[in-house]
């Protein structure tokens, strides 16, 4: 474990807890894309298949359970909670799941480290995580209003993966044989997707104006 990875995990943890807390306290999911949340639940499910087979550390197991639990709770709130579901904007959140899931699945079947079920599922989860934010970014551009909790959520989500890139660079230089080029490419693509959001986020923060994404 290095400081970059710990900071990345903590940032990721805070991002999902910020979102869960927002939905739980104000009983609203305005501005939140259910599609993205469902994709994240799928990412964690396919990423953590080894949850009960390979024990890495208490930290690893606890964090996996938190990510699984929080992502499914968020999906449950938006789909099932009698008050929260009313604030879900299903007319705007129209990104088709299969436009994202199918290409990632095909890519995982073509490009992977090893052709085993677990390995292909793990690779699929990497590709899926890289693009899972798209429905959320599309929704933010459509609704144009970004309440700052949602802005913080997206910002923290992007920051966590950027910290992971620093972690991969660090591990590449400190650990021999640490080569996971698929992870690196997926992680870089993911962070680049946030790049324009980061730009507008910093602009709004610097000029102290409400965050607006260009249509």
């Amino acid at each position: 474990m290095n400081i970059f990875r710990l900071a990345g995990d903590m940032t990721h943890l805070v991002s999902v807890l910020v979102l869960l807390l927002k939905i739980h306290t104000i009983k609203s999911c305005a501005g939140i894309s259910l599609k993205t949340q469902e994709l994240y639940a799928l990412v964690f499910t396919t990423r953590y298949l080894d949850l009960f087979t390979d024990y890495i550390s208490l930290y690893n197991t606890v964090m996996k359970l938190i990510f699984l639990g929080s992502s499914f709770s968020i999906v449950w709130y938006i789909r099932r909670h009698k008050i929260v579901r009313r604030s879900y904007d299903k007319d705007q959140d129209t990104f088709r799941h299969y436009f994202i899931v199918l290409p990632c699945l095909v890519l995982a079947l073509l490009i992977h480290h090893k052709f085993t079920f677990k390995e292909v599922m793990w690779t699929f989860s990497l590709y899926l995580e890289a693009v899972a934010i798209l429905p959320q970014l599309v929704l933010l551009q459509r609704t144009r209003n970004i309440d700052n909790l949602t802005g913080q959520y997206v910002f923290l989500l992007g920051a966590y993966r950027a910290l992971y890139i620093l972690n991969w660079i660090y591990r590449h230089y400190t650990e021999p044989h640490y080569v996971h080029w698929i992870t690196w490419i997926a992680g870089i693509v993911q962070t680049l997707l946030y790049a324009d959001f980061f730009y507008y986020y910093f602009q709004s923060w610097k000029n102290n104006v409400k965050l607006q994404l260009p249509a």
Binding site: D9, H12, D54, I56, K64, F67, H113, Y164, N167
Partner: peptide, 10 residues
């Protein structure tokens, strides 16, 4: 056979 590369990251 290289050891199963442990996925120790989240």
């Amino acid at each position: 056979e290289e050891d199963e590369d442990i996925k120790d990251e989240l």
